[in-house]
Design a protein around this nucleic acid. Sequence first.
DNA 1: TACATTTGTATCGCGCACGACTTAAACGTG
DNA 2: CACGTTTAAGTCGTGCGCGATACAAATGTA
Lengths: 150, 150
Amino acid sequence: MDDSQLQLSNQICFPLYSVSRLLTKAYKPFLDKMGITYPQYLVMMVLWENDGTPVNQISEKLLLNTNTLSPLLKRMEKSGFIERNRSEEDERTVIIKLTEKGKHLKTEAAPVPDELAKILVTENIKLSEVMQLKDLLNEWIKMLSDDNKK
Amino acid sequence: MDDSQLQLSNQICFPLYSVSRLLTKAYKPFLDKMGITYPQYLVMMVLWENDGTPVNQISEKLLLNTNTLSPLLKRMEKSGFIERNRSEEDERTVIIKLTEKGKHLKTEAAPVPDELAKILVTENIKLSEVMQLKDLLNEWIKMLSDDNKK
DNA sequence: TACATTTGTATCGCGCACGACTTAAACGTG
DNA sequence: CACGTTTAAGTCGTGCGCGATACAAATGTA
């Protein structure tokens, strides 16, 4: 192994990048059945918790800009999971509301987190380690997303 | 916070997905100066360590399929960092070799890992935690990439 | 030596991500 | 009220990722 390969950042960033992709792939069989993608699943979770969320709040929660969300939400509207309507108080903001089909999808999605948890915690991977990882990742999110605002 | 938000997998997968994106963004100012992207940087690291690597070995190391790598490598050839040549022993395999420009880029890239390390380890984030995270991520990579082969 | 199978690379289509930019509504200040 | 600024959403172009598929070279086997 070369010197540059031994660098801390390479040892961390590449695994993060790979695991993120591999996990999205692990979700795929479940989400395929539901007719959505992983980023769309994230939007659905925001809406199941808080129906009628405006685009800018979805943007804040998922750390995704509107140039990503606008086309994504249009695809979700086309698929019949959501409705997009301009707010009456403020004509600039667009309110995202679940359709009946979108609300119903929550039932179908209910077992997904458990299925994924089976992958994340195994004999080799302890729950305590995973929880510690979670805290570390959230610390990075705080730092890195603050940097972006400057 | 809703019940589904409390699920382990959501608490882990979303942060992983976000941190991966935010870190790629953190690399961007450095890589922009060099004229490459993060995935291209990964390929360069493979080549700096092992010039003349065939496409299928790059694929294995980076866990990226050829339908991602082929166009990416063509862009890198167009940018003048690499050469793509069919192997003489086996006409199917394509050998990737660094150009002089590509070799020279290693010098320019040398300070990048340290810059990133400054972001990854701070007063709030201990090196020991980061190393533990690394082990956990590699454990997941082992499991998840094995699943894909089946 | 014929032919099925495997292997290595590439093409195609679609859905993100994201920087740069546009457009329109709302707001603030003189 | 006029007008510059801010805010919210969207468009455009480029580069991934990746499933499905194509194709040719190499290999295995009868």
